[in-house]
């Protein structure tokens, strides 16, 4: 039993555009439903999470050779952080706007029977992201913001753009 039994969402996002998408999504969701949330991101919290855990960047944009190490590192860190959040909070679902740090927590929460929602990045028009390919299989609901992406993810839901 978590220390705090109030139901909460876990929101996961990365810096830059991923954070901006989450900011817009939170605003739209809060217009319709009040909720508490904890969060995990590679930046500091600006959205008033009940608890926020900062994780490493999931990729190095300038050095390809760092990728395998970073993948192992981010997986281990997000695994530990997810367990910590699950111990402290009653997490009922996860929502992510990417990128890769969402994969391990989503897998764990899905295995625990929680709801997993993934919104593929608004930057994707013609090609699928590696995270998107994983999350397409893991998520209960998978949204694409550009209609052209239905060619890549036929079972996705087109949502319009944040």
């Amino acid at each position: 039993m978590p220390k705090n039994s109030q139901p909460k969402l876990l929101l996961i996002y990365g810096k830059g555009g991923h954070k901006e998408q989450m900011k817009r999504l939170i605003a739209k969701m809060q217009e319709q439903h009040s909720f508490e949330f904890v969060s995990m991101a590679d930046v500091t919290d600006e959205f008033n999470a009940v608890e926020h855990l900062q994780c490493p960047e999931p990729r190095d944009k300038f050095h390809l050779w760092k990728a395998p190490w970073q993948l192992a590192h981010i997986s281990a860190v997000t695994l530990i952080q997810t367990i910590k959040l699950l111990k402290n909070h009653n997490i009922t679902g996860i929502v992510s706007t990417g990128p890769g740090m969402a994969v391990v927590p989503s897998l764990i929460l899905r295995l625990l029977g929680k709801k997993v929602i993934y919104i593929e990045s608004w930057s994707r028009f013609y090609t699928a992201s590696a995270t998107g390919i994983f999350m397409y299989r893991i998520a209960n609901q998978f949204y694409v913001q550009n209609i052209t992406m239905l060619a890549k993810y036929p079972k996705a839901t087109y949502s319009g753009r944040l």
Binding site: L25, K28, M29, Q32, G93, V95, Q141, Q145, S159
Partner: peptide
């Protein structure tokens, strides 16, 4: 032209 995000209802339903 932006087709504004219109699936918040689905997300809320799924989560809550």
């Amino acid at each position: 032209y932006k087709d504004d995000f219109h699936k918040v209802d689905n997300i809320i339903d799924c989560l809550f």
